[in-house]
């Protein structure tokens, strides 16, 4: 393999990392506070739609990303209110969000133009940074930056301490004077915003289009990445990269004539999932989750 190929795979992996890691660090924030949102896939999908519409309507890629963030935040708010104030089941809400998004995005695409597909003009896509060895999306840098920031906030600030306290022992946090549900709601919104950004990245940056199945399971992969990372945003960066790497690698090597003769492409396509499973089972093993994860907090 030539050097150029290695750069190529590197860039594919980095670009594939972005949505998974963004969604995963968002989920990390809310899981740290005790909320488990299985509806990431749905938020990604809605974010992708909002991003495309926002970018095109405003004529600016940044506004598209903002639209994704806003939409994600809104769904995060819905999820947060249902699972804190209304003490609803987080799992059911998450599944509902996924199903709603699947229908809603396809419906909107049908109603707003061509069914199933909407492209984002090149001019309002996120411009790439040409590096000579390949093009880098600035969103890769944003993702790395956000992962570091989230890590810093969660591990090295008062706010992070509060968030983790609310997740570990909501009663203790309450007694210490924290507003448990408000904090949780805040993390749900933040998580939604990050997932929405991840979704908008798909349409406004990575693919330059939104389709009704654009997420292709990446929200679920992000959930797996959270477990893989053990709620560490920096490891989520690594997890997203590894998954992106193997996914890119699988597609990449399936174009190589020599390899195709040895292994059927279907087995190459399985590889990222098998490897993720093995990594989670082998290297990481048991992950300690916050004690209050998934349980609504009720004072009396």
């Amino acid at each position: 393999m030539e050097l150029a190929h290695i750069w190529g795979i590197l860039f594919i992996s980095l670009h594939a990392m972005v949505p998974i890691t963004l969604a995963a660090i968002g989920e990390t924030i809310e899981e740290s506070a005790g909320l488990f949102n299985i509806g990431l896939e749905g938020i990604l999908l809605l974010g992708a739609l909002a991003g495309a519409i926002g970018a095109e309507a405003s004529g600016s890629a940044t506004m598209g990303l903002m639209a994704g963030i806003a939409t994600g935040g809104l769904i995060g708010l819905l999820f947060g209110v249902l699972s804190t104030t209304l003490r609803g089941s987080q799992l059911i809400t998450g599944v509902g969000i996924n199903m709603f998004a699947l229908g809603f995005v396809a419906l909107m695409l049908t109603l707003l133009g061509a069914p199933g597909f909407h492209s984002v003009p090149r001019a309002v896509q996120v411009p790439l940074i040409p590096l000579g060895i390949g093009n880098l999306s600035p969103m890769v840098l944003v993702t790395v930056f956000l992962a570091v920031v989230v890590w810093w906030v969660l591990r090295r600030t008062q706010l992070g301490l509060w968030i983790r306290a609310v997740g570990e022992n909501p009663a203790a946090a309450d007694v210490a004077g924290l507003r448990v549900n408000t904090l949780r709601l805040g993390t749900a919104i933040a998580a939604g915003m990050l997932a929405g950004l991840a979704g908008a990245y798909l349409s406004v940056d990575w693919f330059g289009a939104v389709t009704k199945e654009i997420t292709a399971g990446r929200g679920f992969i992000a959930l797996a990445t959270v477990v893989f990372s053990g709620l560490n945003p920096l490891l989520a960066l690594l997890g997203g990269f590894i998954f992106g790497l193997f996914e890119g690698l699988a597609t990449w090597i399936s174009t190589y004539p020599a390899i195709k003769k040895i292994i059927p492409w279907q087995f190459v396509a399985m590889a990222p999932y098998i490897i993720t499973l093995l990594v989670v089972a082998g290297a990481i093993g048991r992950v300690r989750f916050p004690k209050g994860l998934g349980v609504p907090y009720l004072r009396e």
């Binding site: 699972s83 209304l86 609803g88 509902g96 199903m99 709603f100 229908g103 419906l107 009704k212």
Partner: peptide
């Protein structure tokens, strides 16, 4: 009406069901 609407309705139903003691509310 496009088929996808059905899924939207299903999604809303499930989200609504997440609320405990819906009846009381």
């Amino acid at each position: 009406v496009p088929l996808e609407l059905v899924r939207v309705v299903e999604g809303v139903i499930i989200i609504t069901l997440a609320i405990p003691e819906l009846r009381r509310l």
